[in-house]
Amino acid sequence: MMAALADSFLAAARGLPLTIAIWGAGVATGLVLGFLVAAIRFFAPLALSWPLAMAVEAVRGVPFLVQCFLLYFGGPFIGIDLSPIMAGWVALSVYGAAYFSEVFRAGFLSVPPGQLEAARMLGIPRHQAVLRIMLPMMALAVLPSLANLAVILIKETAILSIITVPELTFRVQGVGSATFAFAETTLVLALVYWALVEATAWASRHTERRIARALAA
């Protein structure tokens, strides 16, 4: 039993880098995509924003597992043949982007129109007003929600083990199938994810406070 626990922790240590890498990459591309989607939906004409709104609804309404299956198993039939890791990264990015975009959109909507009107009356060009007034104003408002979503995405990465991405869950489960010590390996998985999520949540709260303080000063 102790051996199974030790093996599980070792496997966890080997799987953790990929979990963190694919999470970091997914969050980064998800943020960029999500911001673009939100900006287009907010600023572009309806003909452009409407299909995007549908796409966001679709991604948010379908389980992440089913999206992974669609991409990984269904993709090759329409010429999208990705390795597990690539498929995991793309799926996580798209899934994250849909949720991030909703936060950014709420951020755009939260800036009172009077702020932009004031800039316009002062003759500040629109793109300058967006860049210098709107974005800074919404940054503080959206930060906690973005961080919260990013933490949630850590947990979604566990699902990537099902499409054989050799991350944390996949590696530790491998120990389980080799030793049949499933209870111990799963317990280790739970503890590692719990610690990872709590640590990330703590770090994000800590960073938020520091940013808020820096902006207030």
Partner: peptide, 23 residues
Amino acid sequence: VSFFRGVPLLIQLLLAYYALPFL
């Protein structure tokens, strides 16, 4: 709250599936 929100549901399900019989 911290546990059930901190551990991926997939792992929780596996835990119930494997660890409960173990106990």
